[in-house]
Computed example of a mutant assay.
Amino acid sequence: MKRLACFLAAALACGAAFAKQPTALFYLMSSQKSTNSFTAHIDKIGLLVPTWYQVDGQGLVNGSPDRYVLDLAKQHRLPVTPIVSMSAGRNGFHVLLHDETAKQHMIASMLQQAAEQGYAGYQFDFESISWTDRDAYTLLVKQTAEALHKHGLTLSIAVVPNGPGYAGEGAFSKWMWQYWRGAYDVAALAHYADLICLMTYDQHTRWTTPGPVDGMPWVLDQLKYASKLVPKNKLSLGIALYGYRWYTGNPVRDDGSEASNISATYIDADESIPLSQEQKASVQWDAVEHESWYYFYRDGMREWVFMPDAHSFRDRYALVKQYDLQGFCAWVLGAEDPKVWDELPVAER
């Protein structure tokens, strides 16, 4: 713990020494709250990645930009690289990966939209992929990157952190490797793509027991592992702006059967901060995980809230500067503690 504290202190102390400003990549959802945050803080955003497009198993890309957001970004010379995600689930993505015609349809549509809308490039955010499709996904990235590069466009890849590089011990870890972590050949993806966004969040989720969204020891482990495979000028550290709230759910299922039900939901700062006040909860700072949390009781049972805030953001931003990374990728605009913006400079354009 002492070594971690010293490391973070050094990162905070030397951050100003780096000449290059880390790229502040922020994700944007199609919600009014997300758009409001974007418009209020556009000058501190270095790269905008909106969730505008999806592709199905036949390579059909659907989606469109938010005209207001795109026009405002152009006025501020803010580059936009929309996400392309999967609309047909794991099986549909498998079909796409093994259909050369479908892949070419997808790439052609991406090029058409980029030319019409003035995008700087795209980000692939394909998740829940079978580990057996690892090489096929790498090939898709290679083909897409080569096509985009010919037109002066970039391709970034969002990857689920997969250190230490194998499935691990427990059944949950095995499942995570089979369908979440194992599909990313990070070194190969970094060779073809322009940027790797390491999604160092969702350490604990709705699928797990309560815990930090992105505990610092885990983030450090994942960052150190990825740093061995990805050049630092191509690596962006994921930072969570949202939290989770865990509670006891309904034990009666839709089919009438009964089972234990530990449930959780996303909770943004505009909900988690007022909730702590309403419940008169004592917000705690975990000096090991570098994340805030609290609990309260409802119906005699404890509910847990883990809430990344400006303090946790500051410590992770320090890591970006300490490792001299390309930047950070923060999910998602509208979820953040408003004080996060006090930690960032005006973006260089």
Rank of each mutant, 00 (worst) to 15 (best):
L28K: 05
L28W: 00
M29L: 13
M29G: 09
M29V: 08
M29S: 14
Q32F: 01
Q32S: 07
S34A: 09
T35F: 09
S37W: 09
F38W: 00
H41E: 11
I42S: 14
I42R: 13
I42V: 13
D43M: 07
D43Y: 07
K44E: 07
K44G: 04
K44T: 12
I45W: 02
I45F: 05
I45G: 01
G46H: 05
G46L: 02
L47Y: 08
L47D: 00
L47V: 03
L48Q: 02
T51L: 06
W52S: 02
Y53F: 15
V55S: 07
V55Y: 05
D56H: 09
G57N: 06
G57E: 13
G59E: 05
G59T: 03
L60V: 15
V61W: 06
G63I: 02
S64Y: 14
P65V: 15
D66Q: 11
R67F: 13
Y68A: 13
Y68M: 04
Y68I: 07
Y68H: 10
V69M: 10
V69S: 05
L70C: 10
D71F: 04
L72C: 02
A73S: 04
H76R: 13
V80I: 04
V80A: 03
V80C: 12
T81S: 12
I83M: 11
S87Y: 02
A88R: 14
A88Q: 15
R90K: 15
N91G: 05
N91P: 04
F93K: 08
H94L: 02
L97R: 10
H98P: 00
D99Y: 01
E100N: 08
E100H: 03
T101C: 04
T101F: 08
T101K: 13
A102L: 09
Q104P: 05
H105L: 04
M106W: 11
I107N: 12
A108R: 14
A108C: 01
S109F: 04
M110L: 15
M110N: 08
Q112W: 08
Q112G: 04
Q113M: 14
A114M: 02
A114K: 12
A115G: 11
A115V: 09
E116S: 14
Q117K: 14
Y119H: 15
Y119R: 06
Y119E: 14
Y119V: 08
G121A: 09
G121H: 06
G121N: 10
F124M: 03
F126Y: 06
E127Y: 01
E127G: 10
I129L: 12
S130L: 10
S130R: 11
W131H: 10
T132A: 01
R134E: 11
R134F: 02
D135P: 01
A136E: 03
Y137I: 06
L139A: 09
L139H: 02
L139R: 03
L140N: 11
V141N: 02
V141C: 08
Q143V: 10
Q143M: 11
T144R: 11
A145V: 14
E146P: 00
E146Q: 12
A147W: 05
H149N: 13
H149R: 15
H151E: 15
H151L: 07
G152L: 11
L153R: 14
V159R: 03
V159S: 05
